[in-house]
Amino acid sequence: MTSTFTLAHLSDPHLPPLPAPRLSELMGKRALGYLNWTRNRHKYHRRDVLDAVSADLKRQAPDHIAVTGDLVNLALSAEFGPAARWLQTIGTPEQVTAIPGNHDAYVRATSHCFGRIFADYLRGDAAAADARFPSLRRRGPLALISLSSALPTPPFFATGTLGRDQLAALAGLLDQLSAEPLFRVLLVHHPLRSDSYIKRLTDAAELRAILRRHGVQLILHGHDHIHSTIWIDGPDGKIPAIGVPSASALPHGRHPAAAYNLFSIAREGNGWRCDQIVRGMNETLHVVELNRTRLI
């Protein structure tokens, strides 16, 4: 009988609480972000919620965990240490793959910190000392391909960009992997389609064109803080692209309560089977199974 590999996906923990910033750190975009946090975001990004989700995830004992960015809020220097300690409670770098989100590169002054502090969680299997994108990690039957769309942006913008070099390297990597019987999972923080000009992936069309030629089996992203499934054209059919709510959030507005996904992946004949289980907070703030879907 074919064995099943379970991949967990959570995103956007926005680790609360926010440490007190120094006055010198509250310039430009950070000042606006801090005002937003103190007026609004602290009400619905809660550590007890994140801890409950994290504990439930560990009880499910997945084979690997993908975290698609926004571990911190304003990229304050004091945020990265607590975020690293939280990630260590989720699993070791062998068990967890993490990528940066736009909040992890919120301002230029600390945009390098995520890559340095979380290097062991970013680095590909064959990489040198530094973490570069795209990176490749093989876990069981999976090829986990990580991209970085995180870069500092002006105030009021939360866009992401991959850039020509990263896109060209991705096309080459997917071409190399095409001959191997691997379930290819693409990790990127920003969704591949967005209705928001100020939150979009600026070169999403170029990424979709590469996937149309080379394909993957599954795309995982965060950023929008909602349950999301869209279908991207691939060389052999449609590719599911799955987004997930913030892992620390209470429900507010159009944003649902914290949740994460489990994907059960197994070889089936000459192809693959992939089932999605959504686990998240219910009205009594307990983490339960919310939905179960066959994707492939």
Results as ranks from 00 to 15, higher is better:
90 I>M: 15
108 R>C: 02
57 L>N: 07
103 H>G: 03
69 G>E: 09
38 T>E: 13
120 D>M: 00
119 A>C: 15
65 I>L: 11
44 Y>T: 05
116 R>K: 06
119 A>Y: 04
97 T>S: 14
88 Q>V: 04
119 A>P: 01
83 A>S: 11
92 T>M: 06
31 A>H: 10
32 L>D: 11
70 D>R: 06
88 Q>R: 15
39 R>G: 03
67 V>N: 04
61 A>Q: 12
47 R>A: 07
98 A>M: 05
57 L>T: 04
108 R>T: 11
16 P>A: 13
32 L>C: 10
116 R>L: 10
107 V>W: 04
77 S>C: 00
106 Y>V: 03
23 L>Y: 00
78 A>I: 06
72 V>Q: 11
120 D>L: 05
107 V>H: 12
109 A>C: 00
12 D>W: 04
61 A>T: 11
67 V>P: 02
95 Q>I: 03
33 G>L: 11
24 S>M: 03
60 Q>G: 07
100 P>S: 08
35 L>C: 07
76 L>V: 02
110 T>Q: 13
90 I>Q: 14
14 H>C: 01
122 L>N: 01
16 P>F: 02
19 P>W: 12
40 N>G: 09
38 T>Y: 05
79 E>A: 00
25 E>H: 14
98 A>V: 08
106 Y>C: 08
60 Q>R: 15
110 T>Y: 15
36 N>A: 13
103 H>F: 05
107 V>Q: 12
122 L>H: 10
88 Q>H: 14
46 R>Q: 14
50 L>Y: 08
36 N>F: 08
50 L>I: 02
118 F>N: 09
16 P>Y: 05
53 V>A: 02
114 F>N: 07
49 V>N: 04
21 P>K: 06
51 D>F: 00
95 Q>V: 00
49 V>W: 00
74 L>E: 10
64 H>I: 02
51 D>N: 04
90 I>R: 14
75 A>N: 10
119 A>R: 14
122 L>Y: 09
104 D>C: 11
69 G>D: 03
67 V>I: 13
32 L>A: 13
49 V>R: 07
69 G>M: 03
74 L>A: 12
67 V>K: 04
39 R>F: 09
108 R>I: 01
122 L>V: 04
16 P>W: 07
59 R>E: 10
33 G>S: 12
73 N>C: 04
48 D>V: 08
67 V>M: 08
30 R>E: 09
90 I>A: 10
75 A>R: 05
104 D>K: 10
78 A>S: 15
62 P>A: 12
